[in-house]
Design a protein around this nucleic acid. Structure first.
Length: 481
RNA sequence: GGGGACGUACGCUAACCUGGUAGACUACCAGCUUUGGGAGCUGGUCGUCCGAGUUCAAAUCUCGGCGUCCCCA
């Protein structure tokens, strides 16, 4: 492959960070904005996001949730009402202080998350046990001032997400909701994005600011750093009390409600780029790819017409199977150029049709994940493409699972823990005594934090990796994005 | 949170040290020729991150801001 500058020049294994930036920018997913940490989501990235929205909406609407929209601006007095919550978010809140030239009497926060503003409504809307559960979700943007190390999709000052906010009569119902959503997230992330995750709880130190407890999905990136792919929180009565979300139960007794919140963001796009991309560029999992196949007609001089006509026939054959395809019949680009470009942009399947194929009634079909090409009967192209798309989707998840397995390492002792973390990163599986002190010391000494306390615990719990006392739980430590 | 490197056209880069007409490649536009792994010829368009200072003169020197990347925590 030539080293032309418009291609991806960084290697994924040599310079991961530079490689990621090139794939995102040159693959035309995003472009940097004029304000730090902001990006434009270009058509391919936005289409992937819409695909995520569709899948997740189908799941939550099916289970009785409804979509809504709440205000962007939150008065300071409201944002600061729950103490732990504001302490967690204070450093990254953007404040609106002026309307035109006039200084506002109260500062307004641009939402970093919407619990507080939403609960100001919920306190009015929830009156009776008959109003519960209240199951609402919104798709919106949020802003968090990120001063250092921003990365497109992974960490930015503005991102898109969904935030679900539900109210329940009992803690059990809230628990069930938290787990239901976590399960939906797992399906979304693994079955659609082909990104395997570990699921479990966060430690007290790492939980959402103000939460009773937080559950999480954690993915592992090829450079050995963990990425939080989504979270689902049980907020207990921590918010219902300061915000006055109360209802009268069947016994005419006033009760504080139990609330949950949960979200996934456009960060998921970053995860799929990091996990599936290669030295040629993006690899988009077929289920979320806006264009599943690109057809490249190849011809000499004035022989193009029958080839382009054939390409159109193939496109409509694919269309009948529900496969969105694009014909690239530009005559100012050579086939090789087109191949490189579509590979860089991650289109899962390419179909090449030229004079040789026309004679034999065949086409060449190429799969992006393994870069394999083969010649097939033209009459079977739709079926073959559908099968190939399925196979690519499966293969991406299998490959990613293997990588996750290799990057999940049992630490023998603390020296081994530090050595492994330093050399290759990954999830370090070990015992933990449950003390915040050990967790904090490890973070200070190594930069690693408890990413997840898995729900599925082994029978035998090893001693704490740090203090050597009786282990309470098995946990996974990692450095994280 | 700490440290380092760097900002010149879409991109990559030269001129910077030693102040004096910003140049190459690529991309882009037009035309012609081309098409099975980043095609050729001819012509053309586009640039010194922002602000202040020093100077007759600033891409170049000084200060500040903004931005990007890397390493460590």
């Amino acid at each position: 492959m030539s080293e032309k500058q418009e291609g991806i020049t960084a290697k994924k294994n040599d310079d991961f960070s530079e490689w990621y930036t090139q794939v995102v920018v040159k693959g035309e997913l995003a472009d940097y904005g004029p304000v730090q940490g902001t990006i434009a989501y270009r058509p391919t990235a936005y289409a992937i996001w819409e695909s995520i929205q569709k899948q997740f909406n189908d799941m939550i609407i099916g289970s009785g949730h409804r979509n809504v929209y709440f205000p962007l601006l939150i008065p300071e007095s409201l944002l600061t009402r729950e103490k732990e919550h504001i302490e967690g978010f204070a450093p990254e809140v953007f404040w609106v202080t002026h309307g035109g030239d006039n200084k506002l009497s109260e500062r307004l926060a641009v939402r970093p998350t919407s619990e507080t503003v939403i609960y100001s409504f919920y306190s009015k809307w929830v009156r009776s046990w008959r109003d519960l559960p209240l199951l609402l979700n919104q798709w919106c943007n949020v802003l968090r001032a990120e001063i250092k190390s921003t990365k497109p999709f992974i960490r930015g000052s503005e991102f898109l997400w969904q935030e679900g906010h539900t109210v329940h009569a009992t803690v059990n119902e809230a628990d069930e909701e938290v787990m239901r959503i976590l399960e939906y997230y797992k399906i979304l992330v693994e079955d659609y994005l082909a990104v395997p995750v570990l699921i479990g709880k966060k430690s007290e130190r790492e939980k959402f600011a103000g939460a009773f407890y937080t559950t999480t999905l954690e993915a592992m990136m090829p450079d050995g750093k963990a990425l939080q792919a989504g979270t689902s929180h049980n907020l207990g009565q921590n918010f219902s009390k300061p915000f006055g979300i109360q209802f009268l139960d069947q016994n005419n007794k006033s009760q504080y409600a139990w609330t949950t919140s949960w979200g996934v963001s456009t960060r998921l796009i970053g995860a799929l780029v990091m996990i599936h991309g290669d030295d040629r560029g993006l690899v988009i999992p077929p289920k979320v790819a806006p264009i599943k196949a690109v057809i490249v007609p190849i011809y000499k001089g004035n022989e193009g017409e029958p080839v382009v006509k054939k390409a159109n026939e193939i496109k409509s054959a694919l269309g009948k199977h529900g496969i969105a395809a694009l014909i690239d019949a530009r005559d100012d680009r050579t086939p090789g150029w087109k191949f490189s470009e579509h590979e860089m942009k991650g289109i899962p399947v390419r179909i090449e049709i030229g004079p040789k194929d026309m004679k034999e009634k065949k086409v060449v079909i190429f799969r992006r994940d393994t870069a394999e090409k083969k010649s097939i009967e033209e009459s079977s192209v739709a079926k073959a493409t559908a099968e190939l798309l399925d196979d690519i989707q499966k293969n991406l998840l299998v490959r990613a699972r293997e990588a996750l397995k290799k990057q999940t390492i049992e630490a023998k002792d603390y020296a081994d823990f530090k050595k492994t973390l330093e050399e290759r990163g990954g999830f370090l599986k070990c015992g933990w005594c449950g003390s915040d002190k050990c967790e904090g010391s490890i973070k200070e000494e190594t930069g690693a934090t408890i990413r997840v306390i898995p729900f599925e615990q082994d029978k035998k719990i090893p001693d704490c990796i740090y203090c050597g006392k009786q282990g309470k739980e098995i946990v996974y430590f990692a450095r994280a994005y």
